[in-house]
Design a binder for these strands. Structure first.
Lengths: 114, 114
DNA sequence: TATATTTGCATAGTATATTTAGCAATTTTG
DNA sequence: CAAAATTGCTAAATATACTATGCAAATATA
């Protein structure tokens, strides 16, 4: 059983968005979003995934993969990858589970002093 | 209204295959294949398209596009850049202090279960 | 030619994606 | 504190993907 819902929920909360705010931006009903985040939907349509990926700032293909759809393979050139610098380099390679935890922790950080 | 059915039919016939032969290879029912070829299905699932693309020897992405699904674009450096920065993009803009905290927390995560 | 097999397709049924409506708990506001 | 708004969620309704069954026309075989 694939668990993409937890990931979607962590993404949304890390951005401080409510289900209804996401609904406004994506035209996906808040009720359906809730079902997605609790893994009640096996395979949401690519179009739905595309909208969410856009709003949350992640790659469409990543959601496709999480949901279990075939994803076209491309040439990931490791050399070029290594030449690029930035935050992700400072963090290094992180796993999917770690990313969820970091998103969660970021939410905690930002709501700490209120 | 998108016309991908005609394309699928032309592909199948060019290979001299019957609906039932395609069914055997892809596990998609011949009845459904018939509906696909006459555009009675708006958006067949990516998995179905993937099977057909494989058998017919065309690109999966091409069928995705024909059907009207969003298709990830692969062929530029921006793409690779996005992959590398995927994490920071999903996290959004984070401050220097936040980055330090995240790095610290990541270290904590990785030393936790030992 | 007669009959058996194959072929594409139509129809009905099942599974599942997505929306609408509404409710209980929480949060906001005065 | 009390009323009002907001939030996440559930259940029922609807839309649509996909399959099982079967049939009429075409084709193969004798």
């Amino acid at each position: 059983m694939i668990n993409y819902g937890e990931y979607l929920k962590a993404l949304r909360q890390s951005k401080g968005l409510t289900l209804r705010e996401v609904e406004k931006e994506t035209n996906v009903s808040n009720a359906y979003l809730s079902q997605l985040e609790s893994n009640k939907i096996k395979q949401p349509s690519p179009t739905t995934l595309y909208k969410l990926a856009g709003l949350y700032g992640i790659k469409y293909e990543k959601l496709m993969e999480k949901v279990g759809y075939p994803v076209p393979k491309y040439n990931n050139n490791l050399k070029i990858k290594e030449e690029v610098y930035g935050l992700s380099k400072s963090l290094g390679d992180i796993s999917y589970d770690e990313e969820i935890e970091l998103l969660d922790y970021l939410k905690f950080i930002r709501n700490r002093k209120k």
